[in-house]
């Protein structure tokens, strides 16, 4: 269900002051959405484009939001769809070379990635996961989301999500053991 704070934001957007309500919404969710996207695309510039695109879509489609789901699940759904579409397009463009090359290079750029060696390897393992498995892992591991919320965002059953997370964890552990 929608939280009282989100309810105020929605009421402002749909009624009294769309601009002010939207500013509150952006301020509350921009970082969460950015990091969800950044962990998927790794490159800041891509994450920046995508996060702006997501909020533009939110602005244009907010009237379609139904209060029977939480605002953050609705926002996450838009963000995951945008991100997965972007990654698919990237794959199509880079069909000759390794589609993950750009993502792996981003992990070696000292300006944008300040992780230790083990963290670098951990994110390398993440890049090697299929996109949907990666997004499941990120939501559970980093955002500590409930499977029920993830199920709503990704339109996937809780059972399938649990299996997906388990598989992703095994793959990462194996990668870390081998590397």
């Amino acid at each position: 269900m929608i939280s009282p704070e989100d309810n105020t934001i929605i009421e402002l957007i749909l009624g009294r002051d769309k601009k002010q309500g939207f500013e509150l919404l952006v301020q509350k969710y921009q970082e969460k959405i950015y990091w969800l996207i950044r962990r998927m695309v790794m490159v800041h510039e891509d994450a920046d484009d995508l996060v702006q695109e997501v909020f533009v879509k939110v602005w244009l489609n907010i009237h379609r939001f139904r209060k029977d789901s939480a605002l953050f699940t609705w926002l996450y759904r838009i963000a995951t769809n945008e991100t997965l579409t972007f990654l698919k397009k990237q794959k199509r463009k880079k069909f000759i070379s390794d589609p993950n090359e750009k993502l792996l290079n981003a992990l070696q750029d000292d300006n944008w990635f300040k992780g230790e060696d083990i963290e670098g390897r951990f994110y390398q393992a993440l890049v090697k996961l299929p996109e949907k498995q990666r997004i499941v892992f990120n939501m559970k591991y980093f955002d500590e989301m409930k499977y029920e919320d993830m199920s709503e965002i990704l339109s996937t059953s809780v059972g399938a999500l649990k299996a997906s997370f388990h598989l992703a964890r095994k793959k990462i552990e194996n990668f870390l053991t081998e590397n």
Binding site: H44, F113, G115, E116, I118, F142
Partner: peptide, 11 residues
């Protein structure tokens, strides 16, 4: 993983 959830990315 030590600080596995620490965010190593920079903006």
């Amino acid at each position: 993983i030590p600080d596995g959830k620490r965010n190593p990315f920079v903006t």
